[in-house]
Simulated assay, not measured.
Amino acid sequence: MPKAIWNGAVLAESDRCEVVEGNQYFPPEAINQQYFKPSNTHTTCPWKGTASYYTVEVEGKVNPDAAWYYPEPKEAAKNIEGYVAFWRGVEVEA
């Protein structure tokens, strides 16, 4: 079962992930919310739309913008609406 880990904490775990461009996107209910803080960062993908970010914080350590999601994706990416993906040192075990 795919799992996202950072600083020893399981950030997300689910057997219902979607894989897009090599990234595991975790369903919103699979996220351990206590580690996530909304970020003001946004980026744009030509075919997925505008991404929003979360800063991850575990035991006082902060990983800015380490997770992203598409709250209102374009039609081609509707399957990952609200799903969360990771980077910046977050280990994702498939």
Rank of each mutant, 00 (worst) to 15 (best):
G49D: 04
C45F: 00
M1A: 14
P38F: 07
A67F: 00
P64T: 13
S14G: 11
T50Y: 06
G82R: 04
K74N: 14
V56I: 13
V58I: 10
I80K: 00
P27I: 08
K3S: 13
W47F: 11
E93G: 05
P38C: 07
V92E: 00
T43A: 09
F86Y: 00
V62Q: 14
Y83D: 03
G49M: 03
W68S: 01
E59V: 10
E72G: 09
E91Q: 11
M1V: 11
P73F: 05
E21Q: 11
P46G: 11
A77T: 09
G8Q: 07
A67R: 00
N32R: 11
Y70A: 02
I80H: 00
F36Q: 02
W87C: 06
T43R: 10
G22R: 15
V90E: 01
T43F: 09
H42N: 07
E13A: 14
V62K: 15
K3I: 14
V20M: 10
T55W: 02
W47K: 07
V58H: 03
F36T: 01
I31R: 02
V62I: 15
S14K: 06
A77V: 08
Y70D: 01
K78F: 14
G22V: 12
G60A: 11
P2D: 06
M1P: 12
C45H: 04
E57Y: 05
A4Q: 00
E59C: 08
K37T: 15
F36W: 02
E72I: 13
W47M: 13
P28F: 06
A77Q: 07
V19I: 15
L11E: 02
E18C: 12
H42Q: 14
E81Y: 00
V58C: 06
F26P: 01
K48P: 02
T55F: 06
K78L: 12
P71L: 04
G60W: 08
T55A: 05
V19C: 08
A30G: 05
V62E: 12
F36C: 00
H42R: 15
N63I: 10
N79G: 12
R16G: 10
N32P: 01
T41E: 09
T55S: 10
E57H: 06
G22H: 14
A66Y: 03
T55C: 05
E72F: 11
E29G: 12
V56A: 00
A76I: 14
F86Q: 01
N63A: 13
D65A: 04
A9Q: 10
A12Q: 03
Y53Q: 02
G8W: 07
G8F: 07
V62C: 12
E91I: 10
V56N: 02
E81A: 11
A66S: 10
G22L: 15
R16K: 15
N23S: 12
Y83G: 04
V58W: 03
E29N: 15
F86D: 00
V56F: 01
E72T: 15
I31L: 12
N7E: 13
H42A: 05
K61E: 15
S39W: 04
N7C: 13
E18Y: 15
Y53F: 07
G22F: 15
P28G: 08
Q24E: 09
D65I: 05
Q24D: 08
A67V: 04
A85R: 00
A12I: 05
Y53C: 03
K74F: 13
Y70R: 04
G22W: 12
V84W: 04
E18A: 14
A76H: 13
P46H: 11
A85V: 05
I31V: 15
V58Q: 04
A51M: 09
W68R: 01
A66K: 00
P38V: 07
A85N: 03
I80D: 04
